[in-house]
Simulated scan of single mutants.
Amino acid sequence: MRARYAAEVTVSDGQRHASLGTVSVRNRRLALLWLRRQALRLANAHGSAVRDASPADVRPVRFHGTDAPERLRFWATDACRQDDAIRTLEAGFPLHFTVTDPAVGLHLTLAGWHTAPATPL
């Protein structure tokens, strides 16, 4: 059985926690690609409607400041950050990247991890 990866985007206000969407894919590159797409969609939707949503995309989040969207965009487009992310997944460690909207205390986390292959019965 081939290795699989999962990715998820979550939001928290410090007391409550909710998943905005998840995906299970066949390799780490696809997991990172999905996370990058979600980060850019969320960042680009700041102040406007999301138009290019597919069924696999996360629900939009309303940010009250520009710091969180800019940090999401930077993470998704910076080559060094993306190299670090793929190496983290390649080494078998979970990937976590969190941005905070300080205006309302909202924490948005992008996460990816290796899932154990199913064992045959």
Rank of each mutant, 00 (worst) to 15 (best):
A43H: 03
D83F: 06
A111Y: 11
H114A: 15
V58A: 12
F97D: 12
P120L: 09
V25I: 08
G65F: 00
R29P: 00
G65E: 06
G14V: 00
S48L: 07
T98A: 10
H96Y: 14
S48F: 00
F63H: 01
L42P: 02
L42F: 03
A3W: 14
P102R: 15
W113G: 07
A31V: 01
V50Y: 04
V9T: 13
D83W: 06
L72R: 07
H46D: 08
E8N: 12
A31W: 03
A103N: 10
T10Y: 00
A6Y: 05
N44V: 03
A56S: 12
G47R: 05
G105L: 04
A91F: 03
F97I: 09
L110E: 10
T22Y: 01
A111N: 03
H46L: 02
V9L: 12
R62S: 07
W75N: 08
N44T: 05
D84S: 11
P94R: 00
V104H: 10
G112D: 05
L110G: 06
L108R: 09
A118M: 09
W113Q: 14
D13P: 08
S12M: 10
V25L: 06
R29Q: 03
P94C: 01
L72F: 01
A43L: 07
W75G: 00
P55Y: 01
R36W: 03
V99S: 12
R71A: 14
L32C: 04
A68G: 09
R28Y: 02
A118G: 10
P120W: 07
A118F: 05
R28A: 02
A31P: 04
N44F: 06
F74V: 09
L30S: 03
W75V: 03
G21I: 12
E8R: 15
S54T: 15
V61W: 01
R41F: 07
T10S: 13
S54W: 08
Q82A: 11
R59N: 11
V58D: 13
A111F: 04
D67W: 05
R81G: 03
T66I: 00
A56W: 05
S19P: 01
D101T: 11
L20S: 12
L89T: 00
A43C: 06
T119G: 07
S54I: 08
G92I: 09
A76Y: 14
A91Y: 11
P120F: 02
E90I: 04
F97G: 04
H17G: 02
R87P: 01
P120N: 03
R62Q: 12
R59Y: 11
M1F: 14
R81C: 13
A3V: 15
G105C: 10
T119Q: 11
